[in-house]
Nucleic acid binder design. Structure first.
Lengths: 220, 220
DNA sequence: CAAAAGAATACTGTCTACATTCAACGTCGA
DNA sequence: TCGACGTTGAATGTAGACAGTATTCTTTTG
């Protein structure tokens, strides 16, 4: 059963897009009347959308002083990466027992996309494929709350990165190198060997998680 | 700078209270007009509150069919406990390096409260003290997003438990036994020895996390 | 008697409008 | 010239009303 999305849902997506595009910068205030007019909706549905985004830590609200786009400090980035690592590790732990019956199709598709984009030097394409790879991986764990928490975290990072850094500057070690690491991780998953998976995952994330400067935030 | 809480905040708290009290049962629909009248506010602030609670997975929304209190299946309980374990473990990892400079005052206070309540056979008091112990512990890690995720999870469990089970039935091993386990965990934290902490934490959570039936959900 | 269709009711989604509060700017005084 | 106070303007917090849609009950037909 499908239904047309409500204005609230549309507003959420559109505001996230505005932030990702850089139309709304870090620390920028969101004025309800202006934004409502810009989106062509009235304030009530917009306000509900803002509440949702605030709950996801994409914007923050201070009473009587409205909403503003969050600006991530170095500490914030460290927090996000640290939590992301833990959640993805947990996802793998949950996933490993299920691997024999797992369907790798979706995961393979993202890796294929990643290779294609990398060969065309399409950094944005690699970026998106990478994001989808990890979201798919976590989704395979079959843990709804985990998936939810993880994708919220990814959203926070993604919005920040597309705002502050050129994608190219964030691809440590080159596009093709990153593809290879994901390929290896996928292979280890196919093997189902827990030790190999742990190793591939650690190698994959080696330079990315744990003390990492905000300016060096990596897309992987 | 202080400011009076908005109706949205008040509505959030009140609705959570209604659920905890059992006035709103699992799977029960939340009718906006009725609820707004009951709370003495109009629908717009109520709707914003509902959006927030939905984002916290305390209620769920289906388009054009309103909101309903979530009902937790056994699988949901397993999910929450699993994630809670991972997050609290991560909190300890983050906390250990900071232990030499840590202030245990707040933590000690919750343990004191727990003992007092246990001696008076006050299961609800123990329940609350236990909750505060873990929230305080996680807060000491100094990781805002972690703390946020953790307390959201605790809310989900707490609301469910106070709805479905008598507190007494959930205190595995007796009230005093639980106090002792927390006391030991606190002692290990004071020692600062990582191995001892890990052991105390595992012993503390032994029977609680991982395959646990919904009916057996424990307060610890 | 049961099932399906239609009508009535009630709830959600959305909008317009009003009250309240905060922040910035200008003015007045020291 | 600098600081403080008051005023003004704009944005947030809230309320009430209307339109559209789902659900339920009743009625009618097979």
């Amino acid at each position: 059963m499908i239904s047309q999305p409500s204005l609230v849902d549309l507003a959420c997506e559109e505001i996230k897009r505005l932030i990702a595009n850089g139309d709304l910068g870090a620390d920028e205030r969101l004025f309800e009347p202006r934004l409502a007019a810009q989106l062509g909706i009235s304030r009530p549905p917009l306000r509900e959308a803002l509440r949702i985004l605030a709950a996801q830590h994409i914007i923050e609200q201070t009473p009587r002083r409205g909403y503003r786009v969050v600006s991530l400090s170095q500490n914030d980035v460290d927090e996000i990466y640290g939590l992301r690592y833990v959640l993805e590790k947990f996802a793998l732990d949950q996933l490993i027992p299920k691997l024999p019956d797992a369907d790798f199709h979706d995961l393979e598709e993202t890796v294929t996309r990643m290779w294609d984009a990398a060969r065309n030097d399409d950094a944005v394409g690699v970026f998106i494929a990478n994001r989808d790879f990890h979201l798919t991986l976590v989704a395979m764990a079959g843990h709804r709350r985990l998936q939810q928490a993880y994708s919220t975290l990814m959203d926070q990072m993604q919005l920040y990165m597309s705002r502050n850094l050129s994608i190219e500057a964030q691809t440590h070690g080159g596009l093709l190198e990153g593809c290879k690491r994901h390929e290896r991780l996928l292979e280890s998953l196919r093997s189902g060997d827990a030790a190999a998976i742990a190793e591939a995952f650690t190698a994959h994330g080696e330079r990315r998680y744990l003390p990492i400067s905000a300016a060096q935030a990596s897309i992987w």
